[in-house]
Simulated scan of single mutants.
Amino acid sequence: MALFTVVIILACLHVGSAYIDCVHGSYIYRGITDEPYERGNILETITDISPDDRLVLEPYLCAIAMEYLELDYTAGSSTATLRLIKSLDADEIMMYADAFYYSITCVGGAKNIRKHTIGDLNDNPPVFPTKSYGFTVSEEIPVGKTVLSVTATDNDVSALSKVTLYSILPPVPEDFGLSEDAQTNSCNIKLTKPLNYNKIQHYKFTLLARDVGSLTDTMIVEIAVKDEDNLNPYFNHGLYKASIKENQVGHFSHITPEAIKAQDGDKGINTSVVYSLTTVIPNQYQNNFEIDRKSGVISVTKALDREEIEQISVIIQAAQENDARKTAETVVMVTIEDVNDILQ
């Protein structure tokens, strides 16, 4: 019989046994109970209840415990059991109080208050506010500027479980870097190199958030680069070669390496350019040429004599139509081809 009694006591201590003081009441801290302490488990067994006492379960400080517990007790019984009707969830409980409180109250008597610290299990991953996020930045933003700040929220309550580490999954864009803000548990995406719309117009990469328990979430980041009007027009070549027969007017018979054409250096804007002749060398032949302002096609308007001159350099300028300060120049080396004048 003694052996049986000892076993029962040990079993009660395992689930948590206690006594009730209906005269003075009590306040007992029952230590740490780790989640998830499952539904149906016994949280406390009360023994040696006087047949004259009547017990009820009541909230203390907040009512959240009443959603988790039921008191299995019959009036006049010497024992009572406090059982979970819902698995303990520290994340929910800590929204209402710093611990899990309840009172086993003697009807018409004192309160017997219990306090449990609920050990938080790292069971919630950090979560980004959205699965993908896109935005546009100017190619002129300075290096070092933060283009995006983002926080992944972790619903675990312990400070350690809330710590979030951020990284960019490969392939990592070389023009952007990442820094972490420990105070706000957030990360900042910063520009590490100057942007150039003509080289890269769009970036897409995956941002990873990971907690100390290796639970993760990802967010796709897409950055569109806005082209700014900050470049001059340009010719594809610094030197063109053209030819025309002597004593003829009109367009050149041959141009290499290709037709003369300029374009806006800002490819995303691509403003129209206009052409003009700036210099003809020798300059006495300035009036022998003209250029179409829109197309850039050069024409000989007064015939040339090879016996007088064999080559002429024509310097042409392309200017951005809406901003004459933005210009480019190239040289056209014109060769005058000989014609047998005697036969003519």
Score class of each variant (00 low, 15 high):
Leu69Asp: 01
Lys131Val: 03
Tyr234Asp: 09
Thr279Lys: 14
Ile64Arg: 01
Asn196Trp: 00
Ser272Tyr: 01
Thr271Asn: 06
Thr45Ser: 09
Asn198Tyr: 03
Ala110Lys: 04
Asp305Glu: 14
Cys22Gly: 14
Leu69Gly: 00
Glu180Cys: 06
Gly25Leu: 04
Leu43Pro: 01
Thr164His: 02
Met1Ser: 11
Thr164Asn: 02
Val331Glu: 14
Val334Ala: 06
Leu207Asp: 05
Asp211Gly: 07
Gln311Pro: 00
Ser138Pro: 08
Val127Ile: 14
Leu148Thr: 03
Gly119Met: 01
Asp227Pro: 06
Arg54His: 12
Val280Asp: 01
Val137Met: 10
Thr192Glu: 15
Leu3Met: 08
Thr192Arg: 09
Ser295Asn: 08
Val157Lys: 15
Asp292His: 10
Arg83Lys: 15
Phe235Trp: 04
Pro170Asn: 13
Gln248Lys: 13
Thr105Ile: 00
Tyr102Val: 02
Val225Asn: 05
Pro125Lys: 15
Lys193Pro: 04
Tyr29Asp: 15
Lys193Ile: 07
Gly177Val: 06
Ser138Ile: 05
Ser17Ile: 10
Ala80Ser: 05
Thr153Asp: 12
Val221Gln: 01
Glu92Thr: 12
Tyr166Pro: 03
Gln201Asn: 10
Leu169Lys: 13
Ile336Asn: 03
Ser186His: 08
Ile200Cys: 11
Leu165Cys: 07
Ser243Val: 12
Tyr285Cys: 04
Gln311Ser: 12
Asp266Ile: 03
Val274Glu: 11
Ile220Val: 15
Ile85Gln: 04
Phe235Gly: 04
Asn322Phe: 07
Thr327Lys: 13
Thr117Ala: 03
Val137Asp: 08
Gly76Asp: 05
Asp52His: 00
Arg293Asp: 14
Pro142Leu: 09
Asp53Thr: 04
Val172Pro: 02
Thr330Gly: 11
Glu222Trp: 02
Ile46Ser: 00
Tyr68Thr: 05
Ile104Pro: 01
Asp323Ile: 08
Ala209His: 05
Glu321Ile: 10
Met1Asn: 07
Glu329Leu: 07
Thr278Pro: 00
Pro129Met: 07
Thr279Ala: 09
Ser149Thr: 15
Ile200Ser: 10
His24Trp: 05
Val172Ile: 15
Ile113Gly: 04
Leu231Gly: 03
Lys115Gln: 13
Val127Pro: 00
Phe289Ile: 08
Arg54Tyr: 12
Asp89Phe: 00
Lys111Gln: 15
Leu43Ser: 04
Phe4Trp: 10
Val331Cys: 10
Ala152Glu: 08
Ile93Val: 14
Glu290Asn: 13
Tyr60Leu: 08
Asp53Tyr: 03
Arg83Pro: 00
Thr279Phe: 10
Ser132His: 11
Ser87Val: 02
Tyr234Trp: 07
Asn185Ile: 13
Thr47Phe: 09
Leu191Ser: 10
Ile46Trp: 00
Leu208Phe: 06
Gly296Gln: 09
Tyr166Gln: 04
Asp154Pro: 02
Met1Lys: 02
Glu222Ile: 07
Val339Gln: 14
Gly213Asp: 13
Val150Glu: 13
Asn340Ser: 13
Lys86Ser: 01
